[in-house]
Design a protein around this nucleic acid. Structure first.
Lengths: 214, 214
DNA sequence: GGACTTCTGGAACGACTATTATATAATTAA
DNA sequence: TTAATTATATAATAGTCGTTCCAGAAGTCC
C-alpha cells in the first residue's frame, strides 16, 4: 500500500478476480491484454503495467486467487478429520460440483488454462503443472495414510490407486467443459469409489486378461 | 488432381501429416501459419493457400488424418467381435498406450488441441466436440449391447457406466501430457475394469453415503 | 509455338499482440 | 508552496497473426 502519490482509481483485488475469470474461460494466451484490461474495469495500458508487472505476473496472481477460492474444493483431499475414503470421495464430488457450476467458467483453471501454449510460455505450463502435482501429492498422502492406519492393507497398490483417482479427476475438467452435468459425474464417482473396498487379491492382475495394444 | 498447370513441388499428404503433428503438439491457435509452413516443407504463403483453403481447412484435414491413423485405437470401442467388457478395456488400454508413446505428441489431439480457443474459433471447438461425442456414442452402444445380450443385467445404469469410462478416458489425455507413463495408467485401468462385474445392488446408491459439496 | 492452367517466391496487407514512452493529473510529505 | 511520488491517458513501439496480391515459372492442351 503506497502512502504517497496519486491513488489508484480501480479496485486491484476486483481486477485480479475479473482477470482470473477471463483466464479461466479462455486460457492464458487467448486472453489478450486488451480484453483483460476491459474486464478489469477498462483500465489503460499504463495503469495495468503500474499495478502489475506483466501479463504473466497477473496470471500468477490470478492462479493464486483461484486456488484460494474455487480451488479450495481440493482441500478435501487432505482433510484428515475424514477417513481416507471419505476424503477422496468428498474431494472428487466437490471438484465435480464446482467445475460444473454455471456461475463461472467450466472445468478447472489449473488443468485447462494452459493446455494449448506456445513453447515460449513453458513457464506458465510449469506453474500449473506444479499446482496439479500438489493435488496429486495430497491424494497420495491420503492413500498412504489409509495404509498406515489400517484402513487399507499393506499390500494395497498406492500408486495405482493415486493414478486411478487422479486420472478421473483430470477427466472431470474435460467433461465439465463439454457440458456433462454434475449428476452424471456424481453417479460415476459413486461407482468409482466402490473400487475402494475391492479384495486386495484383485490388485495383483493376471497379465493374460490384459488386452494388447494393436 | 489437376491434369494441367505447374505441378506441386511438395507432397501434400506428407504436409498434412506434418501439420497434424504440429497441431497435436501445440494446439490449433498456437500453431502459427509460419510454423506450419515451415514443417510442411518450407512452402510459401502462396503455395499454402493454393493447396489449402485456410488454416481452419488444413486443421480439418489434419483431424481426419489423425482419426484415420492414431485415432484408430478408439475403434476398439465398437469392435463387436469382443465382449463389451473386453471392448471397453481394450479401447482404454490402446488409447492409453498410444497417448503415452514418445514417437509423437502426448495425449489425444481430439481432446487437447482446442482447449484454449478464442470465441472466434468456436467452430474448431465444435468440430472436435463432435468427434469426442462420436466416441462417447461408441462407448454407449457398447454398454447397451452388453445389456441387450445379457452381459449386463437390465437394471445396469448405462449412462453412469458411460460417464465413468468416458471421464477416465478424457483424463488420460491430461495425464499423458503431464508425463504419466503407460504402466501407471494401465494398472489403473485394470482396477477401473473391476467395477464392471460389481453387484448390481451397488448401483443403487445410498444418498447418506454421499458427501455434501461444501 | 502460343494459350491456358496451376504453382511458385516475395512483398505487402490490415489487424492484432504485449509492452513502453511521454506528458499530465492527483495525492502526500516537508 | 514546493518537492517527491504514484497513477493516469494517449500515442507509439516492434513484432506477429492469417491472408492476399503480383509477377513469373512450369507444366498440359491445341
Amino acid at each position: 500500500m503506497p502512502r504517497t502519490g496519486r491513488p489508484r482509481e480501480f479496485d486491484r483485488d476486483q481486477a485480479v478476480t475479473a482477470a482470473m475469470l477471463l483466464f479461466w474461460e479462455r486460457g492464458f494466451e487467448p486472453a489478450s491484454l486488451a480484453q483483460l484490461r476491459a474486464v478489469m474495469g477498462g483500465i489503460s495500458p499504463a495503469s495495468f503495467y503500474a499495478a502489475f508487472e506483466s501479463k504473466e505476473a497477473l496470471f500468477r496472481e490470478a492462479v493464486q486467487q483461484y486456488i484460494s477460492t474455487y480451488g479450495q474444493v481440493s482441500e478435501s483431499f487432505r482433510d484428515t478429520s475424514l477417513t481416507s475414503k471419505a476424503a477422496i470421495e468428498q474431494g472428487l464430488r466437490r471438484s465435480a460440483r464446482m467445475q460444473t457450476e454455471n456461475s463461472h467458467p467450466l472445468g478447472c483453471l489449473l488443468v485447462l488454462s494452459a493446455v494449448n501454449c506456445s513453447p515460449e510460455q513453458q513457464q506458465i505450463r510449469d506453474l500449473l503443472a506444479k499446482e496439479r502435482e500438489k493435488v496429486r501429492g495430497w491424494i497420495k498422502d491420503c492413500i498412504e495414510r489409509a495404509v498406515a492406519n489400517g484402513e487399507l492393507p499393506d499390500s494395497a497398490d498406492v500408486d495405482m490407486r493415486v493414478t486411478l483417482f487422479e486420472t478421473f479427476l483430470r477427466g472431470i475438467s474435460i467433461q465439465a467443459q463439454d457440458g456433462v452435468p454434475y449428476e452424471k459425474i456424481d453417479a460415476a464417482i459413486t461407482r468409482l469409489m466402490s473400487t475402494w473396498d475391492l479384495m486386495i487379491a484383485q490388485e495383483v492382475q493376471d497379465p493374460m486378461t490384459k488386452a494388447p495394444y494393436l
